[in-house]
């Protein structure tokens, strides 16, 4: 009886999702990529991932201890940052550099701006770009099967042909987590099915990037070239796991589309017209910085609000 008449204020329906649960899904979705990376590059990759995760979690814990804040290590976001950062590193990177990158990602990019939800760019990518600028040699030293060689994208840039099937499966050189488009897609489909990410940003990103390549790539509608560009480098990993970061992507529907186009065009620009073969990290970071502006101009109209009519400007000669 009393239960029947109980009146409480809203919200009446609560989802079970919370930050740590979503982060757990992301970690699960990254598992195929991670396992493949370890198979592909050996135990050194396993070690590097461990180091990144531990130093990310530890630096978040210590920073919050130092400034007297409540510890947020339990939300697993630092684990995701560490994992994503490690997947974006070549497996030959010296350990101390990985540690510095992790500390930079957590302390400078994330915690100094107020922690999870306040960071202005993706922490993992911030850490990666920091490492890329600081240690250009070790960060672009890609070994595969014990042989140092160019990544498929670098080979593509110099005009060589690449084996697209190898690139799809991931039997190529590159960073630990970027090589296998197939494994990333498996994780991405899982994330879409459990509703953690939606397809808008990655979809628009990849489609606009493909259009850019067809228009400006210099190869026309060459399927092999296109597939190589789509599977090569960090595009898949970036599109599904880093461009979709809740904190640093727009929440408005139109904003997501603009954000995706921005990413696609920038990545294409960097890859085709830039000096380096890869440009996904810079494209995502740059677009992250545009998110507040994008959101400001794409605020949707509230239901029932009549759109204000623009006052026509009277021209002087009329």
């Amino acid at each position: 009886m009393s239960d029947l008449l109980k009146v409480s204020s809203s919200p009446h329906v609560r989802a079970k999702d919370d930050t740590s649960r979503i982060m757990l899904y992301v970690i699960l979705a990254l598992m195929p990529t991670y396992v493949f990376g370890v198979i592909n590059f050996g135990l050194r990759a396993l070690l590097l991932v461990g180091v990144c995760i531990i130093s990310c979690v530890l630096s978040e814990f210590l920073f919050e201890k130092a400034v007297g804040k409540k510890s947020t290590v339990g939300d697993l976001s630092a684990v995701v940052t560490g994992l994503l950062l490690a997947l974006n590193l070549p497996h030959t990177l010296p350990i101390w550099q990985a540690v510095i990158g992790s500390v930079f990602a957590i302390v400078v990019v994330k915690m100094l701006f107020g922690g999870l939800g306040q960071n202005f760019m993706n922490p993992a990518l911030g850490g990666r770009v920091f490492l890329l600028i600081s240690f250009a040699t070790t960060m672009t030293n890609f070994e595969f099967d014990g042989v140092a060689g160019p990544t498929p994208l670098a080979a593509l840039k110099t005009g060589e042909t690449v084996n697209t099937l190898d690139m799809l499966i991931g039997r190529t050189g590159g960073t630990i987590g970027e090589t296998s488009a197939l494994c990333i897609l498996v994780g991405a489909i899982f994330l879409i099915l459990v509703g953690v990410i939606d397809l808008v940003i990655p979809g628009v990103y990849i489609v606009s990037f493909a259009i850019f390549i067809i228009l400006f790539g210099g190869h026309g509608f060459d399927t092999g070239y296109l597939v190589a560009h789509l599977c090569g480098g960090g595009l898949m990993l970036g599109a599904f796991f880093m461009a979709t970061d809740y904190v640093t992507s727009p929440i408005t529907p139109l904003g997501k589309v603009i954000f995706g186009i921005c990413l696609g065009v920038l990545t294409g620009l960097f890859r085709i017209f830039g000096n380096s073969a890869e440009g996904v990290s810079y494209a995502i970071i740059f677009s992250n910085l545009l998110v507040p502006l994008i959101e400001r101009v794409t605020v949707p109209r509230a239901f029932g609000v009549v759109k204000e009519k623009k006052v026509r400007e009277v021209k002087a000669n009329e």
Partner: peptide, 9 residues
């Protein structure tokens, strides 16, 4: 062996 080039930029 521990130079962080970013700080020079």
């Amino acid at each position: 062996n521990y130079h962080i080039a970013l700080f020079g930029l």
